[in-house]
Design a protein around this nucleic acid. Sequence first.
DNA 1: ATTGGCAGTCGTACCCATTGAGTGCTAACG
DNA 2: CGTTAGCACTCAATGGGTACGACTGCCAAT
Lengths: 340, 340
Amino acid sequence: MIPERSLEVLRAIVHDYIETNQPVGSKTLVERHAFGVSSATIRNEMALLEEEQLIVAPHTSSGRVPTDKGYRLFVDRLGEVKPLSIAERTAIENFMQGSADLDEILGRTVRLLAQLTNQVAMVQYPSLEKGHVKSVELIKVADNQLILLLVTDISRVQQHLIQFAAQLDEDFVSTLRAKLIGALTGASLSQVSAKLHDFTSQFAPNRETHVQLVLDTLLEQVDANRQDKIILAGTASLAKNEDDFKGSISPMLEAIEEQVVLLRLIQEMQAEENGVALRIGSENLLSEFSSSSVVVSGYEKEGAEVAKLGVLGPTRMNYSANISAVRAVARYLTQTLGGL
Amino acid sequence: MIPERSLEVLRAIVHDYIETNQPVGSKTLVERHAFGVSSATIRNEMALLEEEQLIVAPHTSSGRVPTDKGYRLFVDRLGEVKPLSIAERTAIENFMQGSADLDEILGRTVRLLAQLTNQVAMVQYPSLEKGHVKSVELIKVADNQLILLLVTDISRVQQHLIQFAAQLDEDFVSTLRAKLIGALTGASLSQVSAKLHDFTSQFAPNRETHVQLVLDTLLEQVDANRQDKIILAGTASLAKNEDDFKGSISPMLEAIEEQVVLLRLIQEMQAEENGVALRIGSENLLSEFSSSSVVVSGYEKEGAEVAKLGVLGPTRMNYSANISAVRAVARYLTQTLGGL
DNA sequence: ATTGGCAGTCGTACCCATTGAGTGCTAACG
DNA sequence: CGTTAGCACTCAATGGGTACGACTGCCAAT
């Protein structure tokens, strides 16, 4: 429905605007891009694009700026995304090398992504919902304190301190430990609750409150895997691009600090055909992010998507470069996790 | 050497400037504070203060603004710091209640401090240098993978995944585990290295590389306790007070993200008589923080200082309120940790 | 459909005069 | 000798006025 040349003009406008941060006018446009036509023709095209609400003029006598809708059309019809440069690829590989620990891998990943894109980078911790229990450990650290460890197959160990009213004897702890291991090893996290259904009855009545306390803590740990965590890097780039955002950046910083908000935001984003999900400006329902865009992609472990990563920046961002960076980093992370 | 009335004037200037964010002139000063003298006298005093470089006039025909040196004298001669309001005290107590896990306690603490002061709050994780080993655990999670756990007496468990080239048999793992526990339980972290000196020789030569790998990882974990970690909250307030800082806030955000810089910064601050350490503006040697002030205080566990916490904000901050907030929160944290 | 030309709009930059807050200085006062 | 009133002076901020220039939209010609 929208003719090819109009699209071409839109592409050029987005491109120039991203580069110069100035509203772009018809004259400079024909100078920089070798359209075969004069500025007057471009003016007509631009009037059309404005009617379609794809671009807008900040004031009467100025050039045009893409609207959110304009950016959206731009990325949807982007065609090819620019592949990463060789320098970038080697940078990625060097960055990821020699990490064994999950925390370290994710930490490196998020810094890498921030560096590649010059935007705020976010990496969500893997959801363990689909994980399995590898082992459970009880470690006595004081007469009345245990540390409960839950080891799952996504290279992560959770720990929690349990405080008891009374002293604990070694025998009780070790039988409890053995029975827990027996009952849970290999179970998927979603099964844990069911598997423990009648667990307490194995113990003498006077032990029951202690056992129950441990079970409660354990279930809490399992539950904690559902509300995941997110790590960030590159928040300084918000300040650097400050005038790209309407208003102050401080509500954005606040929202970012509230992990819950961010998590909900990226949770509800569903990937499109090219593997990444994209929200542009007002497509983000939260008002704090109405002049920001978010690019996210899922990453996988053992063939299943376990969490997401992505970047957050002004709507005036380099979509092509950022999309390919997010995609590449997600792929490398998937690959790195596969090697564990 | 500096007469009392001059000090009084300096106090008034700092007070008004913090409140209004405007250079303060002699006339408005006598209006707001009931000195017994006229504005001309105050002008003479101000000329004196300026000669001492305690205040400065941004331009010829404007009021005065405190210099870093002025702020310094102000806080040194502050006399009493304003005690917290009852509302603030109950807020603190509510905030701290019902936390058992160290991570959670520190997380709450840092958010509390940010909220009380409206500044960037920082809490350093306890240094475990003076801690003791409570237990060591080896958990087999796959044929060729172990998780090493180091449990210390500061309610923190460290974990690290170890990957082996060959398969491991249960017997080897459990004897290694038993010997490690035997050798290290109760040892202080600084002794660990020495205690393991001749450890490898207990094993058959073909096991040595495996044992060594575990020991290396263990020592790495012990070492990791020296380079501590810091958590932050309230970075949004940087943006909110943006114009209080010269230049952009983005280098500050960068420095904050580089934990190393922050750690060095607060590490080298030594507490003064009132229990808090204070760096004002250019007293911070790092140029990024030349228009910021930092207030820190140590907090204790079992009578010994284990780490620091504090706030970071513009030199134009409410020193009195922030000092007392930092002091109070440090005390409450010490108290909370004592209950573990 | 494209183009050159042209009137019209509006933001930006610049100059200039005015205003007002605040200073330093001096001379008078108790 | 400290304090004070008065006064001349400085300089940032403000607002009006004008010129400039980068655009656009429209129209008539190609």
